[in-house]
Amino acid sequence: MIAVLGLVVGVVAGLLVRPEVPAAVEPYLPIAVVAALDAVFGGLRAMLDGIFDDKVFVVSFLSNVVVAALIVFLGDKLGVGAQLSTGVVVVLGIRIFSNAAAIRRHVFRA
């Protein structure tokens, strides 16, 4: 419950404050958000499986974000930033879909 409240408060704060995104971080923010979404769906599925562990969640969340940003950064340096970020988004999207399928089976039993 507290966690859901945290998400809601974060969205509201982001909409109200509307901070200027620094130009250096700008290409990485969308990828980081997608990676964090993936970690959240993974955590939700683990909770439904009854194997949720907060330490694992924190580590996977942070490492997902850092690795995704790192891949995009590397891609930019190599000159294939657009393609590589597309690849990252595709992989994360596939993971999010499979996690969502597992959650759906738990919640709707279908």
Binding site: A3, L7, G10, G14, L15, P19, A32, A36, V58
Partner: peptide, 23 residues
């Protein structure tokens, strides 16, 4: 403790999401 940490991380996610969508 677990709930608070997860809430903190999700706060960061929601914040980033909203900022990105807004920008």
């Amino acid at each position: 403790r677990a709930q608070l940490i997860v809430a903190l991380l999700l706060f960061g996610l929601g914040f980033g999401l909203a900022v990105q969508v807004a920008s």
